[in-house]
Design a protein around this nucleic acid. Structure first.
Lengths: 218, 218
DNA sequence: GATAGATGTTGACGCTGTCAACAGGAGGTC
DNA sequence: GACCTCCTGTTGACAGCGTCAACATCTATC
């Protein structure tokens, strides 16, 4: 059942894999260093040779999640997608949150370990946001004078998407007694509203000329 | 420094207060039953006479937060506010998240204990959402045929507000290098976009006639 | 006054993260 | 070859945690 019982060559890599398995099985909160060690059949102290502590192991996993998430968004949005099926950023974002709820919760729903101690984690997280931001900058022609507007748009899109993603994973959602056709329409409705909000000129600003969208600059 | 050292008359109440102090001082994750007991100068088992376990103590605190939150929204939105300063729901929501970040994180950013075991918690959480939902139902005249649309609108508003609130509390926010005027404009911009999205007819639906908004039905 | 229930205390268990000391193997240097 | 050092992994300890079980005490009721 486990990934493999023979003594792993690269213990650090094996720790990350085992930790992700524990998280998948019993949740993020239940992850313990001793669990990881047990799962690998090594002593309870061995993982500490590769990670300073539980936080550092968790930070490494989060970093990989952000890298995976960014790659997912990049792949789904780029015009040169070999599959040809270019997807809207919003769909791609929500699809990821839906297909990998644990990873999503780990990135956005778990208190971070001290960021100053984990610069790599910050770097990859910012990079994921930059995919969204750059797509908005491209829309306005990537002129620095429009950076504030692009940032505001990007943060709005992120807010709506992240809000929906985290709400749909929240426990309270199952108890709201929503009208029956609401759930299936939820994602499309939200993305329609995002588009409507962005189409409306923000404040005394002309509607940005925008015929065909440009690809994200990455 | 502590709330009071004399033996409290109502230990259950004192436990809740002490727990909130611990959370305020060292964070939600650091809360332990033994901390609460120590803080009150009682034995480590005494709190268990009033709460089945850590989860139940946490659930009680969360329940109170939801009650407090709902009351905050009600007060800020009702026309009969004695202060006369009626506030928009969005502002009220974001103001709460900003002024009580710990409570907000506790409600929306912390994994819930098994909901089936804490029906009161669920009830109060749903009630908070109903304030938002009812305000949308009122906008459409509270006709059941429009309940789905009201639900969709309410979930959109909640998504955007919750998304922004949780993003602004997230660690990554400080590392995004935003244009300088973005942060101060963030809240107003988002609420403007919410309004714009709701004003735009969703799909083949006339713009709802809506001159003066009705108060929330509660 | 006896009795039963509620409330608080004490002590133990296994779990956790983490520190310190130790063991062995790889590789370099004399 | 002998020696030394670093890297990796092991063993054993410690305090803190949640929780169970047994005991003490206080209070109210018959």
């Amino acid at each position: 059942m486990a990934t493999g019982r023979q003594r792993p060559l690269d213990l650090k890599e094996a720790c990350v894999r085992a930790a992700r398995e524990v998280i998948a099985e019993r949740g993020i909160e239940a992850l313990s260093m001793r669990d990881v060690a047990r799962k690998l059949g090594i002593s309870h102290q061995a993982p500490y040779r590769h990670f300073e502590g539980r936080d550092h192991l968790l930070a490494e996993i989060m970093r990989r999640c952000f890298a995976d998430f960014a790659e997912h968004l990049d792949r789904r949005m780029s015009f040169d997608d070999p599959t040809g099926g270019r997807e809207d950023m919003g769909s791609a974002y929500l699809a990821y949150a839906e297909r990998k709820p644990l990873e999503y919760r780990l990135m956005f729903g778990t208190p971070w370990p001290e960021p100053a101690q984990h610069p790599e984690l910050v770097k990859y997280a910012v990079h994921a946001f930059d995919i969204l931001r750059n797509s908005q900058r491209a829309k306005y022609g990537d002129r620095p004078a429009q950076y504030a507007r692009a940032d505001l748009d990007a943060l709005f899109i992120w807010s709506a998407l992240h809000g929906l993603a985290s709400i749909m994973q929240a426990n309270v959602m199952q108890h709201l007694v929503l009208a029956p056709e609401v759930i299936p329409r939820l994602k499309a409705d939200l993305m329609g509203k995002i588009d409507a909000a962005l189409a409306a000129a923000p404040q005394a600003a002309k509607k940005p000329r925008q015929s065909g969208r440009k690809p994200a600059t990455r």
